[in-house]
Structures are given as structure tokens and as C-alpha cells.
Amino acid sequence: MSAVRRGKPVLPGFGLALGFTVTYLGLVVLIPLSTIFVKSAGLGWSGLLAAATTPRVLASYRLSLVASLAAALISAVFGLVVAWVLARYRFPGRRFVDAFVDLPFALPTAVAGLTLTTLYAPSGWIGSLLAPLGIKVAFTPLGIVLALTFIGLPFVVRTLQPVLEDLEIEVEEAAASLGASRWHTFRRVLLPAIRPALLTGFTLAFARAVGEYGSVVFISGNMPLRTEIAPLLIMTKLEQFDYAGAAAIAVVLLLASFALLVAINLQAIGRRRAASARGTT
């Protein structure tokens, strides 16, 4: 980063750019979001608490939380494997696979939801294979975890890839020359180095999963207390014109979003600082 001068900036356009940016941000994002807080404030504290903690609502939080955690974990594990393979090995079709990893990112959530449901329904390609084993995927929490894993995968892979590619081979070679086994090297040398990126990828996948709607609404079956995630419950309340109830749940989710946003940004700052301390940026 070049030196920053105090006082009048050399480059023009600061006022215009910043003004436009803040105005746009306020109009498109901040003001709309504030309506939710205002609406739920209309319920008063006790009303808000009551609306946000009915058994059905609590069940939806629990399901969203647990399913998102599970999905983010699975994404993290397999995402690490995929990122590792893409960053460190050469094999035919590698470039194609690399581009393909972004598919859940590029594919509209409705298509993902529709397709996963059809695949894993009892009559689907995979569902029919699992049914004799007694495993039901579609219209169960398992299906929800599946859909959430699908959409979280690119976050993990894309966060890990640059870090894995930047790892200095000398450290591994030193470990090997000192007699460490490959697993030992992985656990003690590599894993700590990629842990921040892994955590960030996990958090991004988790944050995305908690709010996810499109991919889940098809496969979940929306059964209250069983397969109804929080965003789905909000949608149901909106359709019933229970705006206040919907706002109450939305406030809880928004607070969770803010918390995750803070976590993600703090992680990013920490990683940048660590990188510049190491001498690489």
C-alpha cells in the first residue's frame, strides 16, 4: 500500500465517490433493513420476545442452526480435500474441475433445490437406491443438510485455494528432512497455516446456509417443527400476512447475520495482519 498523505488527498473524486457510495448503501440496504427493526419494535419487548420464541419458531432456529453447522462442517472437510487436490496435484481435466467448483455459486438456488429434491426423492436416481436401506433424504432434515452442503462448498474451496497455493514448500521440506511423517507434517505444519482460511470458509458457508431459502424450500417439505427452517417460517408468516411475527424472527436472524459479518471481517483483518507479518501479502 502506498503512503497516505494527511490533509488534502492528491487524487480527486473522493467526495463524489464516497457520497454516492454512502447514499446508495443507505437507500438500497440500510433503510430497507431498518424497516424490519422498526416493525418488530412495534410489538414491544414482551411481544417481540413472545413472537420470537414460540415452540414452532424455536424449532426452526434449532433446525437452521444444526443443519447449517452440519452442512458447513461437511463442506469444510470435503472442501479442504477438493482445494488440496486442485492446488497441489496435476491431473487431466484439472482446469475444468476448477471452474466447475463454482457451479453452486452460479446455479440459481431454485434449480439446485428442484434438482436435489428430484434426485433424492424416493423415486429419484439416488433416493431409490437409498430407500431399500431405509434412508430417506428428501423431505427430511438430512435433505436440508445436503442442500446446504451443496451451496456452501464453493465458499470453502475458494477461500482455501489461494492459501494452499501460497504455502511455502520449504517449510514442508524442512519438516520432512527432520524426520516428520507426512501425516505429522500435515497436522503440525500445514493445518495451522491454513486454519484461518479454513475457519473463514467455514463461517462464510455457515452464514450462507443459515439464511438459505431457495435450495431448501423444495427439498424440505416445510413440515412445522420438523423440517421448517427459519427463513421458510418467515415466508409462511408473510404469506399469512403476519408481518409482525415474521419481523420478530427476522430480527433474530439479522442479529445473527451481523454477528457473523463481524466475525468474518475480523477474521479477514487477522489474516491480512498475519500475512503482512510473514512478509507475504
Binding site: V29, L238, Y243, A250, S257
Partner: peptide
Amino acid sequence: LPLTVSPVICGMAFVL
């Protein structure tokens, strides 16, 4: 921020 907010909440904000 929009990346972490559920799309349903975003739509609801505009309805409100």
C-alpha cells in the same frame, strides 16, 4: 451485509 442476510428477509424489508 447483503451476503449474510437471508434473501427472504431482504424481500420482506421491501414489502415493509
